[in-house]
């Protein structure tokens, strides 16, 4: 598991796409923190969220899924498609492959997000750990979802298309669910992370549970699959 995670993590840092996304997130954090100083005293709080983090949060919530999907949509599907997975499944358990991939991708995003928070912290002189873990829960869910898609669909070209589609539609669905009053749709919001992200308490921890469920489903499917 550790080796798979390490390789996944290193590979993410090697790609041009990932470097571009990291730069984008860091730039958003920098300017978010810089411009927030202009409104100091006027807008200390925005819907329970420090305004310094607003740019970064909007970026993660709106584009997090598409960022993660674009970088890792083929994390499992490419191994299946190119049959490199045959070397992996003969050496370690399939659950270890899923977890290794998950933690490798997660570590990449933890470092990316942590760096962003440090950057913001330099301007604000403090780091809001609550928002950090809240954002992390959202990223964790998106990573688990990406892995599930990559296990479900063994063709990288299809996962790329699906990843883009989910990346665009998922936040739209989330925001629609938050605003809709249709009775038949209300219950759906409880099974998406957006509802829990909106709450100013620790209910975002439920999102970690959702992520674990997605990983369990991915592991179950990979366990049953012939490679």
């Amino acid at each position: 598991m550790y080796e798979i995670g390490k390789r996944e993590f290193i590979n993410l840092f090697k790609s041009f796409k990932s470097i571009t996304i990291v730069v984008l997130i860091l730039t958003a954090s920098f300017y978010s923190a810089k411009f927030s100083r202009l409104f100091e005293g006027e807008a200390k709080d925005f819907n329970g969220t420090d305004i310094q983090y607003l740019g970064l949060l909007v970026l993660i919530v709106l584009f997090g899924t598409i960022f993660i999907m674009s970088l890792s949509h083929d994390t499992i599907s490419r191994e299946i498609h190119e049959r490199t997975i045959r070397f992996l499944v003969t050496k370690t358990s399939r659950a270890s492959i899923i977890l290794g991939k998950f933690f490798g991708i997660l570590l990449f995003w933890v470092i990316c997000l942590f760096t962003s928070f440090i950057l913001i912290g330099i301007f604000t002189q403090r780091i809001d750990w609550f928002i950090f873990f809240q954002t992390m829960s959202s990223l964790t869910f998106q990573i688990a979802l990406t892995i599930l898609v990559s296990v479900l669909v063994p063709k990288p070209m299809v996962t790329m298309f699906l990843g883009t589609l989910i990346g665009i539609l998922f936040p739209i669905l989330g925001f629609w669910l938050m605003t809709t009053e249709r009775v038949w749709a209300v219950w759906i919001k409880y099974i998406t992370p957006f509802y829990y992200l909106e709450q100013p308490n620790f209910s975002f921890l439920v999102i970690f549970l959702f992520s674990a469920i997605l990983l369990l489903i991915a592991s179950f499917i990979l366990n049953r699959r012939d490679c």
Binding site: F87, K91, S93
Partner: peptide, 15 residues
């Protein structure tokens, strides 16, 4: 058992 077996599968690609 995987710790004690070595496998050279057919139709497998390397990285």
């Amino acid at each position: 058992a995987k710790k004690y077996i070595g496998v050279m599968p057919d139709y497998a690609n390397l990285y």
